[in-house]
Write a protein that binds this DNA or RNA. Structure first.
Length: 580
RNA sequence: CGGGGCGUGGCGCAGCUUGGUAGCGCGUGUCGUUCGGGACGACAAGGUCGUGGGUUCAAAUCCCGCCGCCCCGACCA
């Protein structure tokens, strides 16, 4: 591709306020342009990278027996207007007005589509196992798009679904997808860890998220370096030591003016925060007030709370009025004397004697609160967030917390959707059985961004060979003065064009100064920069620069042609090239 | 949805407090010089100041509404 004819534009200055390196670099290098909040166009360069990533995903899906298929989709504008906060996209089922008289589109999720198709297609155990996948653009009315391509309102995702006869079959499919994902991310040059994740929402039995460690990541991971334990903080359960036994003492009021926080309360009473209990208040989508109680030194884990109360549509913080209406006082709240609320108590609080908790009056707390005696919880369950330095659930180590970006997930769905759509098969035993499903997703654009996050330097992007949109970048210098330069550069360009789609090279034939060309070549980030100039020709060929290592050497033209063609033997003499 | 900020040539911004002929840098076009690390000179083009209303002799500037974008909190690949 001739740079002079490529539809792109590099930005001379940094795009303002781009918080992530990938966001800034992809914009600067002309891979993408932003059109609105969370809406991007992939310019031709970006499209090629995107295609490359899709191709790698596709190859790894095919390798484990996946079959690509097409799924129906609702017109994006309709779903957009429907403005459901989270719209999984399948075919349109109908339209209706919601209670605010807004137009809504009722759409199926892809899991439901697959359930429906399975009911139609699968009849015998001989057809199973089966794995299907598809790439599809999804639209989500993201409440807050951010981080460039990391979190957008429109994105392409590969979804795969496995269909098996039984749990054991699902387990095999699950781990084969686990392997496919591991290989996919390796090829993309992404260092991922698979962490256990929440299965609450979709009612599965096992799930992993593939995470790339990144300080800007929106998930918190709980990791143990000693044993390899890895879980999303949403689900990590930390073993909590039972406090020393004490006889329950009588409940006792204590005046604690101005102590609306645990820190001020503990300081005022000169007790450790571990001797206190605190309350947090939430409201479910259907309007139930939920009171969560954890020890003063802990935080409420919302995912665990959602699962504990079955609030599949999420929780929002309660208002002061709602809390008071249930007989509690914000800042001095506890379930003692409260009414019309679901009380969820952390299991550690339930086995901690004689805690200090709110008395539901301004400036007053109780000493010696004991769960079960002073109030009765509706649910007792682990409710806390893991903290840095907490003991590892698996052994002797302690855990650390790191931020991560989710680049893929795998999920054992079980029979939820096949039950719903009566997707059954006739077994060897002659009886009807539900198909057992798994689902597996990778967001393409997010992976592109993560590759750039992981592979860049102060000069720009450094594409791994597998993902690079072009195999090399020719910089022609002094072509106007020396026709030989143009001839050699043209020829190298031609070699790439003939060697196949992914061996195409970018050819900077623009009438720009050398400085501009070198700077742009480094910004764009192809793995090899091939400088053709009177000087290089005099030295015997073409100057070859490895973008990643910065190593450069002048090599005969035939060698460079072999490098462009991807001839591994020659490439190997230059550096350890990865096979295509 | 709550809190904060911003909308002025293609891009980045100043001007607004205290109304009075719209400015700067980069980019763009033409010509010339330059040509292995974001070169230089000369000339030129390009803006209903987000939008609707109001105040005023006069509004980019003051007031009200709306729209859009960015950043911080509740979601997900």
């Amino acid at each position: 591709m001739r740079l002079s004819q490529l539809f792109f534009e590099t930005l001379r200055d940094d795009p303002a306020e781009a918080e992530m390196a990938s966001h800034r670099l992809l914009l600067r290098a002309g891979y993408v342009r932003q059109l609105g909040s969370g809406i991007y166009s992939l310019l031709p360069l970006g499209k090629r990278v995107n295609d490359r990533v899709e191709q790698i995903i596709r190859e790894e899906q095919d390798r484990i027996g996946g079959q690509e298929m097409e799924m129906p989709v609702v017109h994006p504008a309709d779903v957009w207007r429907a403005s459901g906060r989270y719209q999984a996209i399948g075919p349109e089922l109908g339209r209706f007005k919601d209670r605010n008289n807004r137009d809504m589109v009722l759409a199926m999720t892809h899991e439901e589509v697959v359930g429906l198709l399975l009911a139609d297609v699968v009849s015998s155990w001989r057809q199973l196992p089966m794995m299907v996948y598809h790439f599809q653009t999804k639209w989500r009315d993201e409440p807050r798009a951010r981080g460039g391509l990391i979190r957008v309102r429109e994105f392409v995702m590969k979804d795969a679904y496995s269909c098996d006869r039984d749990e054991a079959g699902l387990d095999a499919s699950y781990w084969s997808q686990h392997g496919a994902y591991t290989r996919t991310f390796e090829r993309l040059g992404l260092d991922t860890i698979a962490v256990s994740s929440d299965v609450g929402m979709m009612g599965g039995s096992l799930a992993h998220e593939f995470m790339v460690l990144n300080p800007a990541g929106e998930d918190v991971l709980v990791l143990c370096e000693a044993c390899g334990y890895a879980a999303n903080r949403q689900v990590a359960v930390i073993p909590r030591e039972t406090p020393a036994a004490e006889d329950p003492l009588p409940l006792e009021e204590v005046s604690t003016p101005g102590t609306t926080t645990i820190a001020s309360l503990a300081a005022f009473l000169e007790i450790p925060a571990t001797r206190t209990a605190k309350a947090a208040f939430f409201v479910t989508a259907d309007g139930r007030l939920v009171t969560a109680i954890v020890r003063g030194d802990h935080e409420v884990n919302e995912t665990k709370l959602i699962n504990a109360v079955g609030a599949s549509k999420g929780l929002r913080p309660a208002t002061v009025e709602e809390i008071k209406a249930a007989g509690m006082e914000p800042g001095y709240g506890s379930p003692i004397g409260a009414h019309d609320t679901t009380v969820v108590v952390d299991e550690l609080v339930a086995r901690s004697p004689n805690l200090v908790a709110g008395a539901n009056r301004e400036g007053v707390h109780y000493r010696n609160v004991n769960v079960g005696r002073d109030f009765t919880p509706d649910v007792v369950v682990d409710l806390t967030n893991a903290r840095e330095g907490d003991p590892c659930p698996n052994g002797d180590g302690t855990v650390i917390l790191r931020n991560g970006i989710e680049v893929g997930n795998i999920f054992k769905l079980g029979t939820r959707y096949s039950d719903a759509f009566k997707a059954t098969y006739l077994g060897e035993d002659g009886a009807e059985h539900p198909v057992v499903m798994g689902s597996y997703g990778i967001g393409v654009g997010r992976n592109v961004a993560c590759v750039v996050e992981a592979h860049h330097d102060e000069k720009g992007i450094v594409w791994p060979e597998e993902v690079a949109p072009y195999a090399a970048h020719i910089v022609a210098i002094g072509a106007a003065k020396d026709p030989q330069v143009a001839a050699v550069a043209d020829r190298l360009h031609e070699v790439g064009e003939r060697a196949g789609y992914w061996r195409h090279v970018l050819y900077d034939d623009r009438d720009e100064s050398p400085g501009v060309k070198f700077t742009d070549a480094e910004l764009l980030g192809m793995p090899w920069i091939l400088t053709v100039s009177p000087r290089s020709l005099a030295a015997g060929g073409v100057e070859v620069t490895n973008r990643a290592t910065g190593e450069r050497s002048t090599r005969p033209i035939e060698d460079v042609e072999a490098l462009i063609r991807g001839d591994r033997a020659v490439e190997a003499t230059e550096t350890a090239g990865s096979p295509r």
